[in-house]
């Protein structure tokens, strides 16, 4: 294979590349936040009125630790009862599996194309 000589990159083009990369990064971080898609909030399904430690399902030792931490049944109410929701649809699970596998497949495919070029330039053509 002929020796590949990369073009020299101008200062401006270098700067643009950095800007592109930083923009994409910030986008990936902040777009889910702006769209309020950042999930995993806990919610209290069935609130307890006039909570006591017993009504919150705490035994004497557990209640004593909460009190040592400075909580009362009222202030600890949300902390104790809030739960995550782990329900999901099969469709969403399939989408995730496909995305992850497609990503690695794409990666290995393109990498292999580039890698063969590297090897043939470094070691010469396969005999």
């Amino acid at each position: 294979m002929a020796h590949y000589t990369p073009p020299a990159q101008s200062k401006l083009s270098q700067i643009i590349d950095v800007i592109v990369l930083v923009t994409l990064t910030l986008g990936a971080l902040f777009v889910p936040l702006w769209l309020n898609l950042a999930g995993a909030a806990k919610t209290v399904a069935t609130p307890v009125e006039n909570p006591t430690w017993e009504a919150l399902g705490q035994n004497a030792v557990q209640a004593a630790q909460y009190e040592a931490l400075g909580y009362t049944p009222e202030t600890a109410h949300d902390l104790i009862l809030a739960r995550f929701d782990y329900s999901f649809t099969t469709g969403a699970l399939i989408v995730m599996i496909v995305v992850v596998i497609a990503y690695y497949a794409l990666m290995l495919k393109f990498s292999d194309v580039e890698y063969r070029e590297v090897i043939s330039e470094k070691f010469g053509e396969k005999k």
């Binding site: 990369l21 994409l24 990064t25 986008g27 990936a28 777009v31 889910p32 898609l37 950042a38 999930g39 995993a40 995550f84 782990y86 999901f88 969403a92 699970l93 989408v95 995730m96 995305v99 992850v100 990503y103 794409l106």
Partner: peptide, 18 residues
């Protein structure tokens, strides 16, 4: 996926674009 499915897909989407 159970807690942060959207971020997972957003993140991989980012890596695909890059």
């Amino acid at each position: 996926f159970l807690g942060y499915g959207t971020q997972l897909v957003a993140m991989i989407g980012f890596y695909i674009v890059v």
